[in-house]
Computed example of a mutant assay.
Amino acid sequence: MRQSKIFFNSQLALSHKLIVIQNIRDAVLTGGEEASRDEVLLAIVILATHDIVDVAEEKQMPFNSPLKKAQWLNFYGKIREVPEHVKAITDIVRLRGGIKSLKLPGLTEIIAGRDLISAVSSISKPAIPLTIRERHITSARVWATSPLRMPSQLLLASAFKRFVAYGMTDDMLEVFDSMGHVTMAIDYYVQGMPGSPTLGMIIRTRTAVQKLVMLLPTAEELELNISASSTPDIYECSRLTAIIFGMAVIFPVSNSYNVLQTLVQRLKAAIEVSRIKSTDECLDIFLWILVLGGIAALDKPERPWFVSQLALLTERSKEKLNWIEAEHRLRSFLWLESTCGAGGRCLWTEVLYLLL
């Protein structure tokens, strides 16, 4: 029906939609088990995710995101959901006793995916409780730590452990470790390297990992009084940067300009109160935070600020920091060259121009 374009308001599409709405209404009015059947829930999910499409696109994309079409993220990331439908989904799932009670094959994944897209697009906590996906994350860990992997790949996310004294929590380190594993899996798959995981494994794992990222508590929720501490606290800066990386590499939703705008604004504010600039011991992780924040700030008012901070950081480095050395350090945090490299080089050109 849709052919090469989406026509949600065509006469034929609307006629089907009205039939679905009438049938849902009849089921709800009937009450009892009929109102919460899996088929009714699926119909509401479809109504919620096939209503209003935001067709606007960014003029420039800060990240060359891989697998952005997997799970139709390039389409469903543009959907503006109807709040009434979303509330109905959440209420029915709760009344059923949680998402584990759903029996229709694939329905759990559909609801969890929709919920995660909504959470990422609004920078909020997922509304649907995390389903049991430990086996997917465990499988990715086993694959990533196999002796067959390249030593350079095993460096991903390894450097975060050096900053426990500066606010890194055990939960955050565990989430970042999982982000490193799925990033490595994506890299292998995109490059078509021998022994790469299947796309299905990557999709299941990335959904679980990105959900964990979004569930990390804010500094305020942890009641961290960062501004009152004399020691730098990088927790909130790292959490926000991880969300940016997740949107760039792991779960790249479409039309991310406004979301990234909010994130770089919050990241700039978090850096200002973190005291991260005050110690040379945090230079490497500060580099990671500034580079990812600076790339995300493409075409945004905050871009010059990130460029100026990177210029100051470069001048403070003991050795002359060029892009090759900078990217080498970034790889020990969370980084994927095929996704972030072009944006990073463009950002670094602006830094060098400022240093002239």
Rank of each mutant, 00 (worst) to 15 (best):
V249D: 05
M184P: 01
F251T: 00
T205Q: 04
L215W: 04
E223A: 08
S229P: 00
V209L: 13
Q261T: 12
Y257K: 12
A242M: 06
D233A: 04
I203C: 10
V259D: 02
Y189S: 02
L224I: 08
T218C: 02
H181Y: 15
S254F: 02
L199M: 12
E223F: 03
R239I: 01
A248Q: 02
S196R: 15
P217W: 03
I234T: 09
S254A: 11
G200T: 11
M247R: 10
S196L: 10
Q261F: 02
L212Y: 13
M214G: 00
A248C: 07
Y189D: 02
G200L: 14
E221L: 01
R206G: 01
I186Y: 07
I203A: 09
A242H: 06
V182A: 01
L222R: 13
L224H: 15
F245L: 10
Y235R: 11
C237Q: 13
R239L: 04
R206T: 02
I203F: 00
V209P: 12
S230M: 07
I186Q: 10
E220Y: 02
T183C: 14
A242I: 01
P232G: 07
D187C: 11
M179N: 11
T198R: 12
L224M: 11
S178D: 14
Q261I: 00
Q191R: 06
G180R: 05
P194W: 13
P252A: 03
Q191F: 02
L212D: 15
P197M: 11
G246Y: 00
L215P: 05
H181C: 13
I244F: 11
F176L: 15
V249T: 08
T198I: 06
L215T: 15
F245T: 06
P217C: 01
D233I: 11
G200Y: 00
L224T: 02
E221K: 00
A208E: 14
I203L: 15
Y188F: 15
V259T: 13
G180L: 08
H181L: 06
V190Y: 09
T218K: 04
T241F: 02
H181M: 10
S230E: 04
Q210Y: 10
A228R: 12
T218V: 05
N255Q: 03
S227P: 01
Q191P: 00
T262Q: 08
I243V: 15
R239E: 03
N258M: 01
D233C: 14
I250T: 08
A248S: 13
Y188V: 12
N255R: 07
S238T: 15
Y189R: 12
S238W: 03
K211E: 14
V209T: 09
L212P: 03
E220I: 03
L173F: 10
A248M: 03
A208M: 08
Q191A: 07
P232D: 06
V182Y: 05
E220Q: 10
V213Q: 15
V259A: 05
L199E: 08
L224Q: 06
L240V: 07
S227L: 12
M172F: 09
N255E: 05
T198N: 09
E220H: 08
S256Y: 06
R206V: 00
N255H: 03
V175H: 12
S238Q: 09
D233W: 09
I243H: 13
S178R: 09
V249N: 06
E221I: 00
N225D: 14
L215H: 07
H181K: 08
N258E: 01
L240N: 08
V213C: 12
F251D: 03
S229T: 00
